[in-house]
Amino acid sequence: MKIKMAKNYGFCFGVKRAIQIAEKTKDSVTLGSLIHNPKEISRLQLKFGVKVEENTQAISNGQNVIIRTHGIPKTDLEYLRSQDIQITDATCPYVTKPQQIVESMSKEGYQIIIFGDKTHPEVKGVMSYSTTKPLVISSLEVLKKANVKKKVALVSQTTKQAQNLLQIASYLITHCYETRVFNTICNATFDNQESARELSKEVDIMIIIGGKTSSNTKQLLNIAQQNCPDSYLVEDENDLQHEWFLGKHLCGITAGASTPDWIIDKVKEKILSI
């Protein structure tokens, strides 16, 4: 069994920055999971005392709070600022960008359309910056059934696929009087996706490493499966199954933007031992 790594994979700028902040701000609290990787969250808690709190109201005065990479709703941020709480903002700059665009465009009277998952914390945060009710769509098919106004502004969840955003933008341009399109897909996400697409065309089996709740990791799996049906998502080496590798000769590996190197190395070692 030979292993070939994707050209681009693993930690992105925003995640690296957030991890560094958490390691320096010991015994702090993150509002929601800092990143979507439970193994790395456990490491931060055990080694640096970083705890996760889902409820904003449960955070007490005097605590050090780290804002997650995905950002938080505007009302939650305003509440924290009104209290005696030390805030460290680890929101990824690529997430801050659509927040600012949505706030500005909605104030100018544009209907806000967000291409993303309505239940994802990043999208929830972006939605909260719109001064009018935004339209969140998960696909072009959903958009076609929605009530779209003549003056719209389109942004995307940072981890979506560029070709899908392009399809949605093309539809809006041909159906609306005025369409403002903002490409808010993260560069690292785009590079990782393209690398996964290229590698999946070469290999017998593809392993994608990352949190199973991570949007960008699930996108990598979806892309890989289009070219390599034997593609699997694992959180760590314990998820690997021997039967996956029967009759395989070349294994491709990529990893989501929230996956640390220490997990990737353990997966590689386990595959080589099979």
Rank of each mutant, 00 (worst) to 15 (best):
I41L: 12
K24T: 14
S28F: 07
E40H: 03
E23W: 07
G32I: 01
K39C: 07
K51E: 14
L46M: 10
D27S: 11
L31Y: 08
N37T: 06
T25E: 15
Q45W: 06
P38L: 01
I35W: 00
T25N: 15
V52E: 13
L46P: 06
I41P: 00
H36D: 07
K39P: 01
E23S: 07
S33C: 10
T25G: 05
I41A: 00
R43T: 12
K26M: 09
K39T: 11
P38H: 02
E53H: 09
L44A: 03
V50L: 11
I35G: 00
K24Y: 13
L44Y: 04
S28N: 06
R43K: 15
S42P: 04
S33F: 08
Q45N: 15
V50A: 02
K24S: 14
Q45H: 10
K26Q: 13
K51L: 09
L31C: 07
L46Q: 15
L34V: 04
E53G: 05
V29S: 06
E40G: 02
K24G: 08
K47N: 15
E53K: 02
L44G: 03
V52K: 03
R43V: 12
G49M: 07
E40R: 03
K47Q: 14
L46F: 12
N37H: 04
V52A: 04
S42Y: 13
K39H: 12
V52R: 00
S42W: 08
K24W: 09
D27H: 12
K51A: 10
K24A: 14
E53W: 06
F48Y: 15
T30F: 05
S33M: 11
Q45M: 09
